[in-house]
Design a protein around this nucleic acid. Structure first.
Lengths: 230, 230
DNA sequence: TGAAAGCATGACTGTATAGTCACAACATCC
DNA sequence: GGATGTTGTGACTATACAGTCATGCTTTCA
């Protein structure tokens, strides 16, 4: 006590950033479990009714905890959204980073394979984080001041880096020489639309996922590929 | 006062549906002007911050009228959104209707032109109703209970009818024989993404509109067109 | 085992908001 | 120009919500 006369002065609107000592102790486990319950409850509600319409009271009610506890795990609703989307953002950014790095050192013959690796990595991520991806798709087009910043961040990053990757592909002669912004937006738009229909379960193609994926890839490659038009 | 003991019994939650006599009189003009002011103020706010985040108080403040007046022109916020989107819904539905009807009576050689007419009509509508279309795009992926019903309606109708039209095109051999749900979602997704980038003004292709449109049409036609893959 | 500190709780506060209503102002029509 | 009914007004109510806090509980660790 004597060494910390005012310990709350330097914490204007912060979460309790410090964890107590035990790395795998009961406290740590409890904390993680509560965190999970909170995130799961919030995610379910966000998908049902949109982030804007869901209240803190509803989240804690579904998570089965008191309202005060919410504020030990998140600063506010937007912060909780950021926590929920963090894995998706990290994995997406990582896959894009790896792709760009590989493109810088790759030789002409191996470039197409690098893009395929990106596609595969993102597919795995989407399959594993389906609910989070749906949350992103559902809110990505909200105005800047409406959606939580985390969602805007991801949307901006995804678009700009897709354009950059498309530009590289064009410069290497992997696709036709059209405005990379146009081809990137077209590919991203088509992919997201298909994904959204599938994840939301509305009007999704009735064929199996591998079949739909193959059909989409075929359409995209024809659309932006090298083949001359007859 | 004495002659009207109970005049409000038969009006549970209705708007004043009856207009007073004069067709082009001062009252009619005032009413239409107020309606316009309200819709314009609301639309601007909806685009800035999303329908969910905008309050009635803000709308009437920007429209420069008292709160009570709002409820003479709309039942609630969702009803106002429906009014704002009504022209877009009507024109879109009309263009789709005309296209379907034309396809039923058209001969093989004229079918492609019918789809082009649809595209042209929708383009004109988008150009004239840019703000409303942006509102639709911005909210179309919200969960059913979050977005105003009018937006959900339009989204559902647009998707299902695009699929139907794509199916007809495939059956007539205008495009390749792939699952029409896949090609329809791909085309719609690509188009909406481009449109959204353009209308929102974010990361829109820097080329001119006709040039971008031509590039997109080219990509789409290559993607779903008949040409065999080399 | 007991002191120390994170952790959980839910009642509480202040504020923001949807929707109402009694009344004033106005257009209409005779 | 006055009777009649519509339109405009803004204060008002009831409610719902975000965020706080004093209190008691659990874990930690010596």
């Amino acid at each position: 006590m004597l060494s910390s006369p005012k310990k709350r002065a330097a914490r204007p609107t912060k979460l309790p950033t410090k964890r107590p000592g035990p790395a795998g102790g009961a406290r740590d486990r409890n904390r993680q479990a509560t965190q999970q319950r909170l995130a799961a409850a919030a995610l379910a509600l966000f998908l049902e009714r949109g982030t804007a319409a869901v209240t803190i009271d509803e989240i804690v009610a579904r998570a089965g905890m008191a309202k005060g506890s919410f504020y030990r795990y998140a600063r506010d609703k937007a912060d909780l959204v950021a926590q929920i989307l963090a894995p998706v953002i990290a994995e997406t950014t990582g896959a894009l980073d790896r792709c760009e790095r590989a493109l810088q050192v790759g030789r002409q013959g191996t470039l197409a394979a690098i893009y395929l690796t990106l596609a595969r990595e993102l597919s795995v991520m989407v399959a594993q984080q389906a609910a989070c991806v749906l949350l992103y798709l559902q809110e990505a087009r909200s105005p800047a001041s409406a959606a939580p910043p985390a969602i805007q961040d991801l949307a901006d990053r995804l678009t700009s880096r897709t354009i950059a990757l498309t530009e590289i592909a064009r410069d290497h002669g992997l696709i036709r020489a059209v405005d990379p912004e146009v081809s990137a937006l077209a590919v991203l738009g088509a992919t997201e639309a298909m994904l959204f229909a599938h994840l939301r379960g509305l009007r999704a193609p009735s064929a199996t996922v591998p079949r739909v994926t193959a059909a989409l890839v075929d359409i995209v490659l024809r659309g932006i590929g090298l083949q001359p038009r007859v």
